[in-house]
C-alpha cells in the first residue's frame, strides 16, 4: 500500500472536498451537471495521461494545447466534409501522432531541450492554425454529436472511454516491458542504456503516443459541441501538467502513476463547480489551482529530501 500513498493522499483531499460539498451544497451531486462536468474533463484526462508519460521519461511537452487545437479543427473539418466518425478517429490519431513525432525527433534524435522545442511548436502550431483557419469556427454535422447517441449516453460513453483508455495505459505502463522502460529512462537514462534499453527510442515513442492520445482527446472534444472553435485547448498544457504534478508524477522523472493523474485532474476539475456551489467567488479558481500546484510541489520536495537522508 505504501506504493500508492501519494495517490491516496490526493484522493483523500478530493474526498474532503466532496464531503464538504455533500454537507454544504448537496446540489453539487445532481447527476446531469456532474455528468456534463466529467464529460467535459474527459479529453483533458486523456491528454493528461500523455503528458504524464512524457514527464515520466523526464521530458516535458507544453505544446499539447496547440496539438489539441490542430487535431480538433482537423477532425471537425473532416467530419463537416462528411467523413464518418469511424474514419475521422484514426486520421485524427495519425495527425496527432505525427505532431508528436516532430517533437519527439527534435528532442530524442537531435537532443534539444524539450521545453524549448515544445515552446516553439506551441507557438508555431497555434499560429499556423490561425493562419490557415483565420479564426473560423467549424460547424459540425448533427450526426456526430455525442457520437450519434442521446446526450446522457454519449457522455457516459466518453467518460468510460477516457477512464478505460487510462486503465489500458496504466496497465501497459505496469505490465509491459516498454512501460517499465519509460520509468527506467526517466529514473536514470545512463543506467537504462547500460541495461540494454535505448533511451532515445523510448523517448520518441512516448512523444508519439502523447500526440496520438491528443488526437483521440480532440475527437472526444469535438463530439461534445456543435462547433469547433480554434482557440479550444489553449492553456490545456498547463492543466495537464498541473494534474500530473498534483497527482504525484515527479517532474524529475521516473515516479508517479496514471491513477494519480486521474485523482489530480478530478481535484482540479472539481474546484470551479465546487466554488460555485459553495458560493465562493468563482474568480478565485486559478489562484486556488496555483496554490494547489505549489502545495503539491512543496510536499514532493519535503518527501524527496527526507528520503535522501539527513
Amino acid at each position: 500500500m505504501n506504493r500508492w500513498i501519494r495517490e491516496l493522499s490526493v484522493l483523500g483531499v478530493l474526498g474532503l472536498l466532496l464531503a464538504l460539498l455533500a454537507w454544504r451544497a448537496p446540489a453539487f451531486f445532481q447527476l446531469q451537471p456532474l455528468l456534463s462536468l466529467l464529460a467535459r474533463e474527459a479529453p483533458a484526462l486523456v491528454v493528461a495521461c500523455g503528458v504524464a508519460m512524457v514527464i515520466l521519461v523526464r521530458q516535458i511537452d507544453i505544446s499539447v494545447g496547440s496539438q489539441f487545437s490542430v487535431c480538433s479543427v482537423f477532425a471537425g473539418v473532416l467530419a463537416a466534409a462528411g467523413w464518418p466518425l469511424a474514419a475521422v478517429v484514426p486520421v485524427a490519431v495519425l495527425a496527432g501522432g505525427s505532431l508528436g513525432l516532430v517533437n519527439g525527433l527534435l528532442v530524442a534524435w537531435l537532443g534539444l531541450p524539450s521545453i524549448v522545442v515544445t515552446l516553439a511548436t506551441l507557438v508555431a502550431l497555434r499560429q499556423g492554425l490561425n493562419l490557415v483557419r483565420q479564426g473560423e469556427f467549424v460547424n459540425l454535422p448533427e450526426r456526430i454529436q455525442w457520437l450519434g447517441l442521446p446526450q446522457a449516453q454519449g457522455q457516459w460513453l466518453l467518460i468510460t472511454g477516457a477512464v478505460a483508455l487510462l486503465a489500458l495505459l496504466a496497465w501497459g505502463l505496469r505490465h509491459l516491458a516498454v512501460g517499465r522502460w519509460v520509468y527506467a529512462v526517466g529514473s536514470d537514462a545512463e543506467a537504462a542504456r547500460l541495461a540494454g534499453i535505448r533511451p532515445r527510442w523510448v523517448t520518441l515513442v512516448t512523444f508519439v503516443l502523447m500526440g496520438a492520445l491528443t488526437g483521440i482527446a480532440a475527437v472526444m472534444n469535438v463530439v461534445q459541441s456543435p462547433q469547433v472553435q480554434p482557440l479550444t485547448g489553449s492553456g490545456l498544457e498547463l492543466k495537464a501538467i498541473a494534474a500530473a504534478v498534483v497527482g504525484g508524477v515527479a517532474i524529475s522523472g521516473g515516479r508517479g502513476s496514471l491513477w494519480g493523474v486521474l485523482a489530480g485532474l478530478l481535484l482540479l476539475a472539481c474546484i470551479a463547480p465546487a466554488m460555485v456551489h459553495l458560493r465562493i467567488d468563482a474568480y478565485w479558481e486559478k489562484a486556488i489551482q496555483g496554490l494547489i500546484i505549489l502545495a503539491a510541489v512543496m510536499v514532493e520536495g519535503v518527501r524527496q529530501r527526507r528520503n535522501h537522508g539527513r
Partner: peptide, 26 residues
C-alpha cells in the same frame, strides 16, 4: 551503485536480467 533509484529492487534486477523485447509482458 548505478541503480534506478525510483524503482523497486525486484525491478532493478529484472531490468538488467530480463530479455530486452519491448512488448513483452511483465
Amino acid at each position: 551503485p548505478a541503480l534506478f533509484p525510483e524503482l523497486s529492487v525486484a525491478e532493478n534486477l529484472a531490468l538488467r536480467l530480463e530479455p530486452t523485447s519491448a512488448w513483452r509482458r511483465v
